[in-house]
Design a protein around this nucleic acid. Sequence first.
DNA 1: TCAAAAGTGTTCCGAATACACCCATGT
DNA 2: ACATGGGTGTATTCGGAACACTTTTGA
Lengths: 244, 244
Amino acid sequence: MPESHPEHARFPVTVDVVALTVADDTLNVLLITRLIEPFRGTLALPGGFVLAGEDLLSAAARELAEETGVEHVPGHLEQLGSYGPKGRDPRGDVLTVAHLLLAPNFPVLSAGSDAEHAGWYPVSQVLRGEVQLAFDHERILADALERAKSKLEYSPLAAAFCGEEFTVAQLRAVYEAVWGTRLDPRNFHRKATGTPGFLESTGRMTAGDAGRPAALFRLAKTARPTAGQPTHAVLNPPLMRPRD
Amino acid sequence: MPESHPEHARFPVTVDVVALTVADDTLNVLLITRLIEPFRGTLALPGGFVLAGEDLLSAAARELAEETGVEHVPGHLEQLGSYGPKGRDPRGDVLTVAHLLLAPNFPVLSAGSDAEHAGWYPVSQVLRGEVQLAFDHERILADALERAKSKLEYSPLAAAFCGEEFTVAQLRAVYEAVWGTRLDPRNFHRKATGTPGFLESTGRMTAGDAGRPAALFRLAKTARPTAGQPTHAVLNPPLMRPRD
DNA sequence: TCAAAAGTGTTCCGAATACACCCATGT
DNA sequence: ACATGGGTGTATTCGGAACACTTTTGA
């Protein structure tokens, strides 16, 4: 490294958030419609510039709050990876750090504000190319989906898609939506409830649905995030997705 | 996002490289001794500032070449993750994008140049805190090790630590060094040679060593990187490391 | 009484483990 | 001959897949 402290190029840095949720057995991603150039009128991931003195996760959480009205992170937020800075923004070199948010379905509140309109879109539609995304956001979304798929295998993060309490069937619906597969309900039940450090019984039951009431579970204490810090708990043995 | 295009803070961006290799059944990391402040005289990961018009992987490869004399990437290079920009450099906010290089043991050539002296250090020593690293490089190294461990499970990248041709025992030594475990030579042999899309026989044998000569293998064609692009091949079923 | 979903028991099979054993070389 | 590491065969065990079956509700 030449140490004459020359023009160390400085780059604008943005954070983008791939917010995923499961609704109606479908994996959805939160997208905004851009109101400004470039890519005006095009769908894009929510995100924006990192401010001085700000950390990456904080910036991602702030942008999420600004564009959805959600005050504190409603699920699991983690860094996905960085893209650029070359050739991904027509205005010039911009480095973006993409983030992945796994969250229960939450209402998008900013529809009426002067910010961009935000809404949920099925991931499969976007990745099939039925809608175009701005910048390299389609690639980022593809990477995020792959990350999410593998996260479900060896971490308890599927529960981040559910609320505080949930049934085994709801949890299974998450796996099926993210992995795009069908899982045997009986074997899944045994595996999920039998994996140490994953689920914790609440003693409560559902009522009013069709069929037999289901027991309500929550994430085991050791797998829960503490003080806003995301969990790093490991599912051992992993819940492997079917290959091929 | 307030779209008045205000002071979008611009950040200096660096790339750091965690170069790992296996030598004498030990996992080693490439470190330099810093010749300038801050952290002058302290060991650190090789790295440096991203230049205008440069991409992240290119910058990482360039810094590696500048500080080790290696012309083209001698193994598998991938992005690890980004750190900062807040509070990790006493000079101010610097965003760094860490990279992971898995490579066969290569000589460090820059010892005599005016660049920093570079050398291999056992990862275990560093993570035990027996040597201090500059900035947040110890945390980055810890993350890199975790990434490397899991990469070996589901990708053919253990071969990136070996040369062009290698024996099953050499490959096993890589797994043992990275995972810090012992593996049964017989079962490992069966698993490695029996995994489709992993190893390919060269027909050649070793000679001159103690014991029976070993067959030489290379990475299967479908698992080899093409045109400098890293491989994304997947090992299925994975080679699972022993847990607990 | 029937449909629907929850949950349990059981069988089957393939993969991981442990280890006995043989092979091919250097000394 | 013997030590050293390479490689194969085999019994055991464990976990996942498949699925019959019972349980508990709503309609």
